[in-house]
Amino acid sequence: MSTHMATAPEQGSASSGDPILEVRELRKRYRADGPLVCDGLGFRVERGEFVAIIGPSGCGKSTLLRMMSGLLAPTSGTVALDGRTISKPPPEMALVFQDYTRSLYPWLTVEKNVRFPLAGDKKMPAAEKSRRVAEALASVGLTGFEGYYPGALSGGMQQRVAIARAMAFQPQILLLDEPFASVDALTKEGLEDTLLDVRDRLRDAGNTMLMVTHDIDEAIYLADRIVILSKPPCVVAEELQVRLPQPRTQVETRSDPEFLRIRAYIHDVMGLTHQRQAVPGQQN
């Protein structure tokens, strides 16, 4: 029992009629006789939205993300991008992985890494590719690092390269798999703001972001809407609107009463609030 049941923030799933991504009745078993990882999971993401998916560790977040990106086939159910059911990674989508040391290619320079997703496109003129690369690097504050190899950069900078690489691809929807889980707390704040900057630039282009994370504060800070997953086998436990003013800043946004209210509520929903016993002899 929690001491305070937080008042519920505005709930609700996407309502307007322009979903870019629609997940329907998704089920996944890795083996026919294995346990269900996801059990009829469904939600929608509107064009231009920033949605964060949070769930307890081991609830199948990564499985869900791999299914949404077309890397993994669901046992049943569908993922539709722009109304079309996907069966392989669609060209309108890009992915930023948690593990930047593995997702970047260490034998390529920063410039070539960012250019990598464009390299196979024979129709795009080289000048356009260069322009996109330069723009993507500028948007994450890495202009001037084109000639460096990833191994010479800090973890935070490497993850910026990964974000720039995804941006150069100019996806309609950017999927992020716990993108900042492997960097230190300070770097993480910097990267969160980079992501918000990138998004502000691209909002007009209808750029949509979908992030999977286990960090409740990060989800509230970044997202317009939060999808909370249940314990495995995962289903959508709840969807919340995050009504926090833009632009968001680390200190002000995080101390906004609404921020704290949503935070307390999510803790309740996820069953994370536990009552701490008073220690005898201590006064608090």
């Binding site: 800090s154 973890g155 900078m157 770097t187 910097g190 800043t249 200190v251 002000e252």
Partner: peptide, 8 residues
């Protein structure tokens, strides 16, 4: 308070 400058 201004947002913390990116550390990296």
């Amino acid at each position: 308070v201004r947002e913390a400058p990116a550390t990296d």
